[in-house]
Deep mutational scan, measured.
Amino acid sequence: MALNTPQITPTKKITVRAIGEELPRGDYQRCPQCDMLFSLPEINSHQSAYCPRCQAKIRDGRDWSLTRLAAMAFTMLLLMPFAWGEPLLHIWLLGIRIDANVMQGIWQMTKQGDAITGSMVFFCVIGAPLILVTSIAYLWFGNRLGMNLRPVLLMLERLKEWVMLDIYLVGIGVASIKVQDYAHIQAGVGLFSFVALVILTTVTLSHLNVEELWERFYPQRPATRRDEKLRVCLGCHFTGYPDQRGRCPRCHIPLRLRRRHSLQKCWAALLASIVLLLPANLLPISIIYLNGGRQEDTILSGIMSLASSNIAVAGIVFIASILVPFTKVIVMFTLLLSIHFKCQQGLRTRILLLRMVTWIGRWSMLDLFVISLTMSLINRDQILAFTMGPAAFYFGAAVILTILAVEWLDSRLLWDAHESGNARFDD
């Protein structure tokens, strides 16, 4: 018995066209964080690309023209004298008006014999932002004059995390709450300039795509075929072959399989920071003279006294001054041990922890910024005066060393310790 099946006739004509040209192939790229070699397709503007294995951002879609970056830099340069030299806060102490600005706080630190601690604050609040705007201006002028731009481009990517104007702005709020127990506070004209400078700096850093600047100024022929001998440069993120001198053909720094002496430098910085954190938390970090009496505060006791007036601000200072430094030390110690013992479990967790400490590390400088600003506000000789204690130097040095330890660690070593050939990683 035959089955009668109805015929289905399409209502619209289906047209099949042959592909007349070869589909576009992607360029081969190595991930600078996990060293995976993959094919990167062509990316349009405002599109980002991520590593298929570790999800690290390979290409950032946010990109401004150099002219727009230069305009932002010149605007920031105009704001800087007002943000640093004009009063941020006014207080009335014992019937006398006192003005506080950024430069005055750094000068008070240096004047009291601790120039190293003052230079830490100076670099993060004044030096690094000033280098940022002058570097962008150098790129703008240098591109037109045919100057060598490689050193500036190499420095810009590392400079971003040292620009800490946003953290200093939080420190202004913390210092205001600490001082309000002794005097009446009012915002100064410099505060508005400083807030504007923070906003412009944040926007500029978020749109400063150094890798795209490398592509514009020093374009290189990408690798179009897969080759395990391809290496990625950690300076400019170019994937290719080393030249005859073993250097990256684009930025001219040595092109090595792994960062040289990464573990040794990381261990040295980490152990030194552990040693410095002990006096930083045991010795007094601030000293207040009130009517001839002397009151010393460690980091913890200062947080407890701050909690009596504002528990939320005390929580912020606790996280930045105690929780973050010790968390960074514990995480980095764990990561280094996992590399030495070739741990194969929990790779995803370790990668996330490394990215976390990379982002939060700079916030530990908050305590030094609060001390710097408070020193310029309260300084009335023996009637009422505020000065920093010996722990300030140890704390600042420990924070900087932990930042350097994270920067010096080559994250690809975590993958080397893991089993080879993993296309995915999980716990």
Rank of each mutant, 00 (worst) to 15 (best):
L3T: 09
N4V: 06
N4A: 05
I8C: 08
T9G: 08
T11W: 06
I14L: 10
R17N: 07
R17W: 06
A18C: 07
I19W: 05
G20L: 05
E22G: 08
R25Y: 07
R25W: 06
P32S: 07
Q33P: 06
F38N: 04
L40E: 05
P41Y: 06
N44Q: 07
S48D: 15
A49G: 05
A49E: 04
C54G: 00
K57G: 04
K57A: 04
I58A: 08
R62I: 04
R62V: 09
L66N: 10
T67H: 07
R68L: 08
L69H: 09
M72C: 06
A73L: 11
M76C: 02
L79H: 11
P87C: 08
W92A: 02
W92M: 02
R97K: 15
D99A: 08
D99C: 07
D99S: 12
G105H: 01
I106A: 03
M109E: 10
T110S: 15
T110W: 01
Q112H: 08
A115K: 01
I116F: 03
V121L: 08
F122H: 15
F123S: 02
C124R: 00
V125A: 07
V125P: 05
P129C: 10
L132T: 06
V133R: 00
A137R: 00
Y138D: 01
L139A: 02
G142L: 08
G142C: 12
N143E: 15
N143G: 15
M147F: 06
L149F: 04
L149Q: 12
L149N: 08
L156A: 07
L156F: 15
E157A: 14
R158M: 13
K160A: 11
E161I: 14
W162H: 08
W162V: 02
Y168M: 13
Y168H: 06
G173Q: 04
A175G: 05
I177A: 05
V179L: 01
A187D: 09
V189I: 11
G190W: 01
L191Q: 04
L191A: 12
F192I: 10
F194H: 10
I199H: 04
I199A: 13
L200G: 14
T201G: 07
T202I: 13
T202Q: 13
T202G: 14
V203Y: 09
S206K: 15
L213F: 07
L213R: 14
E215S: 15
E215P: 13
F217H: 14
Y218I: 05
A223P: 12
T224C: 14
T224L: 13
T224Y: 11
T224E: 14
T224K: 14
D227N: 14
D227V: 15
R231H: 09
V232R: 12
C233V: 00
L234F: 14
C236I: 00
H237V: 11
H237N: 12
T239Y: 09
G240S: 10
G240E: 10
D243V: 07
R245G: 13
R245K: 12
C248Y: 00
L263W: 13
A268Y: 06
L270R: 01
A272L: 03
I274T: 13
V275M: 12
L277T: 12
L278W: 11
L282W: 14
L282K: 12
P284H: 10
I285K: 00
Y289T: 06
G293A: 12
G293T: 10
Q295S: 08
E296Q: 13
D297Y: 02
D297L: 06
D297H: 06
S301T: 11
S301E: 05
M304V: 09
M304H: 12
A307G: 14
A307N: 14
S308C: 08
V313Q: 00
A314N: 00
A314E: 01
I316E: 00
S321C: 13
V324H: 10
P325Q: 02
T327I: 10
T327F: 09
K328L: 00
V329L: 10
V329F: 11
I330V: 12
V331D: 01
V331H: 03
T334A: 10
L337P: 05
H340I: 09
H340A: 11
K342R: 12
G346L: 15
L347W: 13
L347S: 15
R348S: 13
R350F: 13
L354Q: 10
V357T: 10
V357M: 10
W359F: 09
G361V: 05
G361A: 11
R362G: 01
W363P: 02
W363L: 02
M365G: 03
L366I: 11
V370H: 00
I371E: 00
S376A: 11
N379Q: 10
N379F: 01
R380K: 02
F386N: 00
M388P: 06
A391R: 00
F393V: 12
G396F: 03
V399I: 06
V399H: 00
V399A: 15
L401V: 13
I403P: 04
I403C: 10
L404Q: 15
V406T: 06
V406Y: 05
D410Y: 00
A417E: 11
E419Q: 10
E419K: 12
E419C: 13
G421P: 05
A423Q: 15
F425W: 12
D426R: 06
D426W: 10
